[in-house]
Amino acid sequence: MSEVVGFCVAKQLLSRLPWAFALAGAVSGCSAIKPADSFTLLTELPPGFKFKGEASYVPRTGESCTVPAREGRNYPGKKFYKQDLSNEAQTANFEVPLTSNEDGCPLVLDNFAYQVDAKYGAARLDLGRAFTGVSFRDGSTEAPSPPPVLVLQKQCEWLFRTEGPDRYIGKILKCKSVAAPDQANDSSVKGPMQRAEFAGKTIKVVFNISSVERPAVGDNWVQFPSGWKRCMGDSLEDAYAFCRGNTTDFKPFKMPDGRDCTVYPNCTE
């Protein structure tokens, strides 16, 4: 066994561990033994993002076997992928098998679910999370073939709000599918994809983050040229504090870093 093949086999063994980083593609030598029955998942993340993916497998149609039960760190029927957080924009690629075999049970890829986390502050819990994924179904190679690289575009934005008695700013991450350049909106592929069509193909998922933020809850903030002001509500202790037409009384809040502010995101007018 050559060093390259031995290294790639070691990576396949690592893929059985939860959230082990699938290194396929990281070493060019592995491309020589790239499985034909797989697709490449290519992810592009903005600064401050990280990614986790989970490929789930089910018995092939017509098989009477079942996926073996989990045993310790071994997760039959699942493969895990990970892209760590970076302060820089980053790209990663993973080889995702379309078929598998566990204890003699032939399996096929049922879905690939993934989550993205994004940081908005220094504290451990200052992050937002969004979920999405791709599902697959049986199909024929005679069906219309997707392009060599299918691009799925995800547009993300921050929704801000105040939390707790001290009214700290917290944020919710929201991502939605948008039309990719030169391609149809990926709403056309929200349904299950024909598995056989993607052997040797690439699914490229591009995440972008908007520079414009907006309130997470309606009628809580009033926008001014200097930024957003938090409505007073009934009192400083009013956690819901709807404006209800009062656009003159506002209350202070705190940024994630602890600064006392009166307008978001500039903090002071």
Rank of each mutant, 00 (worst) to 15 (best):
M1K: 11
E3L: 12
F7K: 13
V9I: 13
A10G: 14
K11G: 13
R16I: 07
L17K: 06
L17Y: 08
W19V: 08
A24R: 07
G25M: 00
A26D: 13
V27H: 14
G29N: 10
G29E: 09
P35C: 07
A36C: 07
L41T: 08
L42Y: 04
L42D: 14
L45Y: 02
F51C: 08
K52G: 11
S56N: 08
P59S: 06
E63T: 13
C65M: 00
V67P: 06
G72Y: 00
G72T: 01
G77Q: 04
F80Q: 01
K82D: 13
D84H: 12
A89Y: 05
Q90G: 11
Q90F: 01
F94W: 06
V96N: 00
L98Y: 04
N101F: 02
D103P: 04
G104R: 00
P106H: 03
V108L: 00
L109T: 15
A113P: 07
Q115T: 15
D117G: 12
L125V: 11
L127H: 14
R129P: 01
T132W: 00
G133R: 01
V134W: 02
V134K: 04
R137Y: 07
S140P: 03
E142T: 15
P144R: 10
P146H: 04
P147R: 05
V149D: 11
L150E: 05
L152A: 10
K154W: 06
Q155K: 13
F160V: 02
F160N: 06
Y168V: 05
K176C: 12
S177Q: 12
V178Q: 06
A179M: 02
A180W: 00
D182P: 02
D182K: 06
A184L: 02
V189L: 02
G191N: 00
P192V: 04
P192E: 02
P192R: 06
A196V: 08
A196K: 10
F198C: 06
G200Y: 01
T202C: 09
T202K: 08
I203H: 03
I203E: 00
N208D: 12
S210K: 03
V212T: 15
E213V: 10
R214I: 10
P215F: 04
N220R: 14
W221Y: 14
V222C: 11
V222A: 13
Q223D: 11
P225H: 07
S226T: 14
K229C: 10
E237A: 15
D238K: 02
A239Q: 13
A239C: 09
A241T: 07
G245Q: 09
D249S: 15
D249G: 11
K254F: 11
G258Q: 01
